[in-house]
Design a protein around this nucleic acid. Sequence first.
RNA 1: GUGGGCGUAGCUCAGCUGGUAGAGCUCUGGAUUGUGGCUCCAGCGGUCGUGGGUUCAAGUCCCAUCGCUCACCCCA
Length: 421
Amino acid sequence: MVIKAVKGVKDILPKDIGKWRRVEDSAREVFGRYDYREIVLPIFEKSEVFVKSVGETTDIVQKEMYSFLDKGGDALTLRPEGTASCVRAYIEHSMYHPKGTVTPLFYIGPMFRRERPQAGRFRQFHQIGAELFGTDDPAADAEVMHLLMTFLKTVGARKPKLLLNSLGDDKCRPAFRQSLVDFLANRKESLCPLCKERYETNPLRVLDCKSETCAETVRSAPTIDSFWCDDCADHFQKVRKALYGLNIEYEINHRMVRGLDYYSRTVFEVTASGLGAKDAVAAGGRYDALVKKSGGPDVPAIGWAVGMERLIESIGDSAGEKTNDTAPDICIVHLGERAHGEAFRVAGLLREQGRKVLCPYRQTSMKKQMGRADKSGAKLAVIIGEEEFNKKTMLVKNLSTSTQKEHPIGDIRKIAAEPPA
RNA sequence: GUGGGCGUAGCUCAGCUGGUAGAGCUCUGGAUUGUGGCUCCAGCGGUCGUGGGUUCAAGUCCCAUCGCUCACCCCA
């Protein structure tokens, strides 16, 4: 039995790499427009980095982390998300100096969660993430969402839709949560079995249950907006105003909640079509308390992450491989032992001159080699047979017009510089 | 962790109520001595996921197991 890749992880094959490159390239380009700087973070961290920031009671920490003890006995974890690492690095390198500095960062890389794989969900997946440290200006919230939407439109995500909410902060959220628990307490019987569980573990999640009866039950439940403190309400209104100013369409959903503990105030999510049951392609929000909680100064921050696999899935073939960027400029065709050696000498010279050249190793029939040259998409074939070798010449054939001309072998540089039409 | 669907050639798949494995694409050779795209002919390629059971006989039926996949939980 051949050894196969671990469950839930994928090889990205050469035939698919073009899409990945395009997504990464446009990410870097778009981030540049907003003056974000790339940071490359380690793939594993001390486990506490994630346990503390993501939250001990979350599913990610409780059952999805790839954690292990290394030979020195350190408890390490393959990162399940990027924000925690980014916050750690931000603090470790004192990026908050001088006081008042705003630090825009982005990263691209793999994340690891041990879940059951399904459409758009993997154990090793890739995220493109943005983090903006040092400001709680509502304009920053809107700008960060503008960045995200601009990026998604640039790469051609299908029908991206922005959903917005505010979770309040430490001052006002506890009251909301309590109120919701009270509301559900005497309605538990009308909830689905799953939500009865949620009532205990994460009551906020009952709000966006898909079950008919739960949705009905929850229709009259309290919503977060009526519990916002003045600051949070004000912040939300200013974010909306800024979004309006940037001409960004969005939909408010007060039932939207987050799976990670560190979010406060602004949270958002982008869904796209062309995906499976999970249509969220990106998600993010504000985490004003996290830097301080992680041992840094009291610095507010906001960020988001897009799932690359889901994004690429959503792009589909619409923005697919249109240009044949793998086609060589020139294919060499050779016949006979001596011509074989000469062919590689010629190929080498052409490559030194910057040409993309294909030269077959096997000595097969001319018919075969011409067929390959044709399939490769090359514009020119350079043919060197016994006859040409003896005469120190080569045939240069234009594969689209089928015209060919004999050249002295010394013309190689000329042909490399200006391939004949 | 729970449930559904599927595992047959390198790839996509067919194979009926059990009778000893097929097609297309790819690849190799030929029709066409050293000239590609189209066509035609031939060939290479399979422990039918694995193990067990029923049977004269199993790709087909039964059980187990592994893998893939979709969905639930949760998340990007």
